[in-house]
């Protein structure tokens, strides 16, 4: 019972705020308490307004770069970075996957940075490839290209769901695989230490595959202004900004998990069962959230 509570606590602290969308994605039906909804709703509206301003500022600065202003170039890059940080706070971008992964796995804090950065870079690259092929090679309409991203999004979430199911299977049956069924305690730790610091590249690629829609929009705007190269540079900086946000969530989760385990250990309780509980709960969150995102993408196909 205590373990269940601890799992809920950790997921509550680190997974939920990390997602921002998933409060509602993961639990679509219960209406939030009236007292807290205006605050959250106000924050989301505020965030959107800031994005709107940044969007217009980047567009303005972009035009000035074309007129040869070096200050405008620096402004574009600075704004793109800020946009990346803010934008990644919104739903998507693999924050739930990163948080869940580090709830489930023992890892160094540097792994949090590595995973967040790799996902961001792949998301940016995916947008460049998508726009490059559709707009530059196939000459597709801009608004069609925005819609086309949904297909990739659907595939990406599908892959994450599959990996989540696999993670669940492994966590739930972990002991059965172990070498010696009698000494469960020792095994839990063996299994963990073995994987310490290792990231799952499949999960990173699947999560990163979803092209960042903001990156697509910036690239399309660059194309409309016949400055694709500048768009690619801006997107590179945007991904650095997103990496900051996603990595922060990764690092916070790594440290949170560690603190929780130390606490449980000091209380004289066994940690291996908690670790297993965390791994199971995290895989359920991954499957649940990605499944909903996949469904959401499917309705938009």
């Amino acid at each position: 019972m205590k373990i269940v509570l601890a799992v809920l606590l950790l997921l509550g602290i680190f997974a939920a705020p990390a997602l921002a969308d998933p409060f509602h994605k993961a639990a679509p039906s219960p209406p939030p308490a009236a007292s807290e909804s205006p605050a959250l709703g106000g924050f989301v509206a505020w965030l959107a307004e800031r994005q709107h301003e940044l969007n217009d500022s980047i567009a303005d600065a972009f035009r000035n770069v074309e007129h040869g202003s070096r200050a405008a170039l620096i402004l574009v890059l600075g704004l793109a970075f800020l946009y990346g940080v803010l934008h990644a706070i919104g739903p998507g971008h693999g924050k739930s996957v990163v948080a869940s992964y580090f709830v489930a796995h023992h890892a160094r804090w540097t792994s949090g940075i590595l995973m967040g950065s790799l996902i961001s870079v792949i998301q940016g690259a995916s947008a460049v490839v998508l726009v490059g092929i559709l707009a530059v090679v196939l000459q597709a309409k801009q608004i069609e290209i925005l819609n086309r991203g949904t297909v990739v999004e659907f595939v990406s979430y599908g892959l994450i769901v599959a990996l989540g199911v696999w993670m669940f299977h492994r966590a739930a049956t972990g002991r059965l695989h172990s070498h010696d069924g009698h000494d469960q305690h020792a095994h839990g730790h063996d299994g963990q230490d073995h994987r310490r610091g290792q990231l799952d590249p499949r999960l990173i690629v699947a999560t990163g595959l979803t092209p960042c829609a903001s990156a697509i929009i910036i690239l399309l705007f660059a194309l409309a202004n016949r400055a694709f190269g500048l768009g690619v540079i801006a997107v590179a900086v945007l991904t650095v900004g997103m990496a900051v946000t996603i990595s922060t969530i990764g690092v916070a989760t790594v440290l949170g998990r560690r603190a929780l385990l130390v606490m449980i250990d000091k209380a004289g309780m066994e940690t291996h069962r908690l670790e297993r509980g965390l791994a199971i709960a995290a895989s359920v969150v991954i499957v649940g959230v990605s499944g909903l995102m996949m469904f959401d993408a499917w309705t938009r196909l």
Binding site: D21, A48, Q51, H52, N55, D56, H87, G90, P91, G92, I143, L146, N147, R148, G149, T150, E153, T210, P211, C212, A213, S214, I216, I217, D296, A297, R300
Partner: peptide
């Protein structure tokens, strides 16, 4: 005006 990829605000009006 369909509603495309990733449902955070990407169009501002």
């Amino acid at each position: 005006m369909t509603a495309p990829a990733a449902a955070h605000p990407h169009v501002f009006i």
